[in-house]
Computed example of a mutant assay.
Amino acid sequence: MPPRRTTHTDFTDQASTSLTEITSGSYRLPARFSQIKGIGIGNFFMSPKFTIGGLEWYIKCYPKGCYANDKGKYVSLYLSYASETEVCVTFEFCLLDQLGNTVTSLRSRNTHTFRRHGKYRGWSKFIKRDDFEKYIRDDHFEIICGVTIISPKGLAEPNRSLIVVPPSDLPEQLGQLLGSKEGADITFVVGEDIFYAHKLVLALRSPVFKAELFGSMKENHAEKISIEDMEPIVFKALLHFIYTDSLLEGKELTSGVDGLDAQATLTIMMQHLLVAADRYALERLKLMCQEELSKNISAATVATTLALAEQHNFPQLKAICLEFATTQDNYFQMTSTDGYKHLILSCPSILKEIEEKQSITTFAEQADDISHDHGFSLLKLFLCNSSKK
């Protein structure tokens, strides 16, 4: 059980409520990192009490984790009960950055019974502390807590059966529609593979597909379109997201790729999928790909991800890559990769940004030393490209 030491911080109450027998609601907790960064391991801050379904709740957040054994490496997050009526609920937490983008979210797998005031449930390892800090910009972050009351014992009238509404299965049904090909009215040829889809679904989800299929870009009511410069597995993952609003399973996404470990292969596939999402203006998919890439940065892949972020204008992903790449150990490991050679050829201005980030005055000499293996000076390459501009 987490320690009960507490550090209080005042936040604005922004609760949404409903008083039906089976009800759900959410509470938004805006916060500033400067207010909570000094809270130590085992200490927490609490939100104001908020009301959902006529019952009172509050959020307990341990910015450096609730257990000493975790050594401050995690943020712990709990939903606490402030009423006395026994109630069964499901709940979830979402962490948002300052732009309102979801950084991470977790939902309870089972129904939990809260029987008394002070009872709490949640996650001791909601997010890694380092990952949490990466997403903080302008000192701001926000936590959203959603609560669904399944069986509020004592609130319903005696002998009245409760009607439980299951979660939506629309994504699963649309995924089945894609797989069955039933009613498909458009065919895509990608490499040697053929994919069948539905124009209305594509147009609803992507403004680019809408223009291609129904707007000024449509080609003589074509029912077969060839997709260039994209691997079939990437297009399959793109369609999967369009129909189900979710990512393709990692094992399926990396199947058939030999010669690399699973994590490196997944990173490469996510990079390709991010480019495809940008091509078809799928904003949510772009964020999901960037989240996956940012969580799995390594010295072997950071250079290619950084080049991608620079070329396609993903500033948040770029900042995370620069933060990782400019630590001394990561930097020297990165410079020995083929991805780094690609980075300096395609984005030479990144060298200057890395230099400024590192604040190392001897960067030029280090770059010349590193370049001996591949026969040119990185600094000279940078100056040459700059002069051409």
Results as ranks from 00 to 15, higher is better:
93 F>Q: 13
211 A>I: 06
21 E>C: 02
177 L>G: 03
186 I>Y: 02
378 L>R: 05
70 D>G: 01
340 Y>N: 10
180 S>C: 08
3 P>I: 07
261 D>M: 01
381 L>N: 13
352 K>Q: 11
170 L>M: 15
314 F>E: 15
53 G>E: 06
205 R>V: 07
152 P>V: 04
40 G>P: 05
52 I>G: 01
357 K>Q: 11
305 T>A: 03
149 I>P: 02
15 A>V: 12
69 N>L: 09
336 S>M: 11
218 K>I: 02
373 D>S: 07
146 G>S: 08
295 K>H: 10
238 L>E: 10
164 V>G: 02
144 I>L: 11
305 T>P: 03
181 K>F: 13
77 L>V: 11
306 L>R: 05
90 T>L: 14
234 V>A: 11
20 T>D: 15
223 E>A: 03
370 I>Q: 08
185 D>T: 03
66 C>A: 15
364 A>P: 00
20 T>Q: 15
255 S>N: 12
290 Q>S: 15
179 G>H: 12
164 V>T: 11
174 L>D: 10
37 K>G: 01
53 G>L: 04
297 I>T: 10
219 E>N: 05
333 Q>I: 00
247 L>D: 14
122 G>D: 12
84 E>G: 00
238 L>V: 04
298 S>H: 05
369 D>G: 02
135 Y>T: 05
139 D>W: 09
98 Q>Y: 10
369 D>P: 00
129 R>N: 14
192 E>W: 00
94 C>W: 14
126 F>E: 07
321 C>Q: 06
13 D>E: 13
238 L>Q: 06
76 S>P: 10
18 S>E: 13
30 P>I: 00
12 T>G: 01
79 L>S: 05
276 A>P: 05
280 Y>E: 08
114 F>S: 01
134 K>E: 13
63 P>T: 09
361 T>L: 09
89 V>K: 03
296 N>F: 04
285 L>C: 04
244 T>S: 08
89 V>H: 06
246 S>T: 12
7 T>Y: 03
131 D>P: 02
240 H>F: 06
331 Y>S: 01
64 K>V: 13
218 K>F: 03
48 P>G: 03
29 L>E: 10
68 A>N: 07
367 A>V: 03
166 P>G: 07
82 A>Q: 12
128 K>D: 09
102 T>H: 02
187 T>K: 15
384 C>E: 14
58 Y>V: 01
42 G>M: 07
58 Y>F: 09
254 T>E: 06
213 L>F: 13
137 R>Q: 13
16 S>Q: 12
338 D>V: 12
81 Y>F: 13
44 F>K: 14
102 T>V: 12
215 G>W: 09
378 L>H: 06
35 Q>S: 06
312 H>E: 06
62 Y>D: 04
124 S>G: 07
